[in-house]
Nucleic acid binder design. Structure first.
Lengths: 206, 206
DNA sequence: AAGAGTCCGGGACAACCGACCTGATGCACC
DNA sequence: GGTGCATCAGGTCGGTTGTCCCGGACTCTT
């Protein structure tokens, strides 16, 4: 067993926990299975983390960071706003289809946090970060393209976060990418229709 | 302990399990806590159900039935389509705000089913029922009011199911009913805008 | 009233879990 | 080349969980 500073060991254990939980689910993941996944003995676990709960805290913040990165990288300015929105959704969607277990894990972790007294703030922070990420993306997009919205940024951001969340869970449960794609097309139209400045919006709704 | 036929005992245990799980979460609910909640001895539990998994199956189908009933009762035809949609959402929303634990439970149960090999079909059935319920509501509404949609009923139904699901989870985590109401207003407009026949839609979008 | 079928109670068991403890081992520094 | 500290290994402990067993009690039929 190679020796390494505890900070790095913590990272290693966190990543191992994410792998184990992605594979087996939060409920069936034990401190032993995490230690085994990381290839270290059980005592190393408790040397690096005060408790299982402390590790879960680390897992939640880490995986929320993953999620935010994915969403931020999905959105890249294109020629028209509508295409930007569409391509962004598509990129995010491909990630969900490719890594369903990891996304399912985010829901499990949210509920773990909600049910554990004193950890509710982690769930809240997770969802606030989702909304904040979308708000930031909208602002950033508005800087590069220049447009006006018929609803406040905060409202649209929260809608996008919630709707994405719901549609993701829906896809994870039902599969059927084709049907989900049809729904997504409808949402594309809807979001594009929220742009007041008609310059980049194909449907000229006054 | 009053004697009763096992069918009724099963119902009683199922309802007790829902209460216990709503209060404590699925993970912390044990066969013992369920038996205690129902006021019966532990052996009665295993007399009525082959295993804990069998009970969970009963819980899932029961609570999904509850959910469908709630949604169906929320929608009642009003003077205009837009008002019907708005009032329907509002009624559903009030229920979520009044019974958050029960709604949170539905998410926990979905994930329980998804993670338990051989029980995935329960999660799928749950979400198919959600979509089917919305589709049925749309058809029923179309019979009484007469209108055309710019998207297929199936697509709209799945969108409504997914979006409601996401917004519900969002509200359960973040609270803040006011912000959620603003999002809902936006969705009202969106859904009302999907109606092609402008006769009952206040916003005259051609 | 007798017996079969149904329901209930207490107790026990094996498995598993998180947490902890005691030594041993490598590493850097004096 | 010790010395102190960070890191690791194996074993153990108390507690909990799902499941099962067996004896007794109730109820309905005949």
């Amino acid at each position: 067993m190679a020796r390494m500073p505890s900070a790095e060991r913590r990272r290693q254990l966190t990543e191992a926990a994410i792998r184990a939980m992605t594979r087996d689910g939060v409920a069936q993941t034990t401190t032993r299975s995490i230690a085994a996944e990381a290839g270290v003995s059980l005592s190393v676990f408790h040397y690096c983390f005060d408790s299982k709960e402390a590790l879960l805290e680390s897992v939640i913040t880490t995986i929320t960071g993953h999620y935010v990165t994915i969403v931020k990288e999905a959105i890249r300015p294109r020629t028209t706003l509508r295409e930007t929105v569409r391509a962004g959704f598509r990129a995010y969607w491909d990630h969900v289809a490719a890594h369903p277990g990891e996304h399912l894990l985010t829901y499990e972790l949210t509920q773990y946090a909600l049910r554990r007294p004193g950890l509710e703030h982690l769930a809240r922070r997770q969802y606030e970060l989702y909304t904040a990420t979308y708000a930031q993306l909208i602002e950033q997009l508005r800087d590069s393209v220049e447009f006006e919205l018929s609803v406040p940024v905060q409202v649209l951001a929260r809608y996008l976060a919630a709707m994405t969340d719901g549609l993701t869970l829906n896809l994870l449960v039902l599969g059927d990418d084709a049907a989900a794609a049809a729904v997504l097309d409808m949402i594309d139209d809807h979001v594009a229709g929220l742009v007041v400045d008609g310059a980049h919006s194909p449907a000229a709704v006054s």
